[in-house]
Every structure is written in C-alpha cells, then in structure tokens.
C-alpha cells in the first residue's frame, strides 16, 4: 500500500510538470510490477479475475489517485483550449486550429487509455476501437476532400 499512498500525496502537492512525471513513474512502476509478475503466473486464455481485476484483464487498473491526476490534466488542457478561443485574432488561425486539435487529441487519448483502460486491457479492444476510429477519420476526410471543404 505504501506506493499508492505516496503517489496520492505527491499528486496533490506537485505542479503539472511534476504531476506528469509522477504519472509516468507510477506507470512504469505498475507496468514493471505487473509484467514481471503476471506474465509468468497467468497462462494465456485464463480469464478468471484476480482480486482487483475484471474478468479477462491481466493488468491492474490505475488507482484512484492516478484517476484524479488524469482529471487534473484534462482540466488544464480544457482551460488551455478555452483560453485559445479568446486568443482568436491575436495569433494566426492556423496555429489556433492546430493547437486546439492537438489538445482534443490529447484529451481523447487520455480518457480512452486511462479511464477506458485501453492501455492496460487486452490489445484486442484497442485494435478494434482504433479500426473504427481510423475508419471514421479517414473515410469522412476523403468525403470532405472530394467536396472541396478545405480549399
């Protein structure tokens, strides 16, 4: 339990940059632990959940502190986005659009990978979801291109 608690306190104290580092460290620690232990103990095909795991999962979820940390990051990025909106006219539109899209992508992937557990859950979910996502983006982009939206 010691590790989780230390992460919890650290998140509250640190600034965003520090928080991201803490996040990464926590992630590495978790991964190292999990991969070291689980890959040997769990034969493939076995899905009976260990305590703290859902059926079919082999790696544990983030802990509540990490969930909160992600929420903090999401808030900061959202605030950044709304701030950009008020800078319209002051800096080039192209830059604003690029930054806004970048922020949306970051938020999207934070939620999908941490809250929807795509980063710890089995790869099959990630693959299928990415197929749908890429199909949607690519196909509709082509439609918009043929209708000359970006000209």
């Amino acid at each position: 339990m010691a590790d989780t608690e230390s992460t919890e306190t650290s998140t509250e104290e640190r600034s965003e940059g520090g928080a991201v580092q803490a996040l990464e460290r926590a992630e590495h620690e978790l991964e190292a632990k999990v991969e070291h232990e689980l890959e040997e103990h769990l034969p493939p095909g076995v899905t009976t959940p260990a305590p703290g795991l859902l059926p079919g999962e082999v790696r544990p979820h983030p802990n509540p502190a990490q969930y909160v940390l992600i929420a903090v990051v999401l808030c900061v990025v959202t605030a950044f986005e709304v701030g950009l909106y008020y800078l319209e006219g002051d800096i080039p539109d192209a830059l604003i659009i690029a930054l806004l899209l970048g922020s949306a992508v970051v938020k999207f992937f934070l939620v999908a990978s941490w809250y929807m557990h795509l980063r710890t859950d089995q790869a099959i979910f990630r693959r299928f979801f990415i197929i749908g996502l890429v199909a949607a983006v690519a196909l509709y982009l082509i439609v918009l291109l043929t209708l000359h939206v970006f000209e």
Partner: peptide
C-alpha cells in the same frame, strides 16, 4: 503492494 498481493494469490 496491493498488486503483488493480487498476483500471488
């Protein structure tokens, strides 16, 4: 840690 405990059982 919690994780290790889970794995062990």
């Amino acid at each position: 840690t919690e994780v290790e405990a889970e794995v062990a059982v």
